[in-house]
Design a protein around this nucleic acid. Sequence first.
DNA 1: ACCTACAGCAACCTACTGGTTGCATGTTAG
DNA 2: CTAACATGCAACCAGTAGGTTGCTGTAGGT
Lengths: 126, 126
Amino acid sequence: MAVKSGAFRGSAPIFAALGDGTRLRLVARLCAGGPQSIARLTAGSEITRQAVTKHLLVLADAGLVRGVRKGRESRWALEPEQLEVARRYLDLISEQWTQRLEALERHLESMPETKARAGKRKRSPA
Amino acid sequence: MAVKSGAFRGSAPIFAALGDGTRLRLVARLCAGGPQSIARLTAGSEITRQAVTKHLLVLADAGLVRGVRKGRESRWALEPEQLEVARRYLDLISEQWTQRLEALERHLESMPETKARAGKRKRSPA
DNA sequence: ACCTACAGCAACCTACTGGTTGCATGTTAG
DNA sequence: CTAACATGCAACCAGTAGGTTGCTGTAGGT
C-alpha cells in the first residue's frame, strides 16, 4: 500500500541511471576517487570523452551527480541524496515483503483446524 | 576500492530492471499483493497483457521475480534475493562515501599549519 | 603571443526497448 | 465436446540510448 502511494514516483529514473554498467562504474569511481574532471574519468575507460560526458549528464539528470566548471576543467562529484532515496525505496520493499511473509505465517498458524485441509499445514500437529 | 572489485558486476542489470516505471509498479504490486497471475497483474494496468509478460520476463532475467505455470495460469512471485543484492550495493557506496568525507575531514584538521594556506582552513585559528 | 589540454555542441549511426496486433496452444467449466 | 479463459510465440513499429566523429570555444602554461 504505502509502497504504491507515491514513494516510488521519483525512484525509477534513479534506478534507470544506475542501470548501466558504464554509469555504475562512473559512480563507483567518483565515490572512491572523489570529485574528478571529465578527462580524468575518461582515462582508463574504454569509451570516448563525449560518451563519459553523456553518462555524467544522465546521472546528473537523476540527481546522482553534480558538476561545476572550474577554470578550464569541470569537476564532477557524487551527490549522495538521491542514492539514499533509492536505498530507502529498496528498504521499503524488502520490509513490506517480510511483513507479508510473517502475516501469512501467522494466518496459517491461526487456523490449522478451521478447515483442516491436510497437506497445507506447515507443522503436522501429531 | 572495494566497490570497484567485482561486487557491482551483477548489480547493473538489477538496477536496469528496476529502472522502468511500469516494472517498478509490477514489483510493488507483487510485493503488496503477493503472487499473482499475469491476467490479474494486467487488470488495472494501462498496457497489454503481452507487455506485462515482457516486463515480467525482464524482471525474471534479473532474478527479481519468478513464475511457475500452475494449470492454465502462471503465478509470478517476487524473489527478494536480488533485491537484497542491489540494496547491499547501495549501502556499500553510501558507506564508502561517508568514509571518504570523514577521512577528508581528519586530513584537513591534522594539518592546519603544515603549509598554512589561508582560505582553506575550516576554523580560523586566531 | 602561441600552443596545448579540457570541454561543449551537433550530427549521425546502430541496436535495443517498450509497446502493439494477430494467431496458436493448452486448460478448465458446463 | 465445446466454449471461454489464460498464456505463449512471432512479427512489426516508433522512439530512445549508447556510442562515435568532427568542429568550435576557452583557459593556462611558457
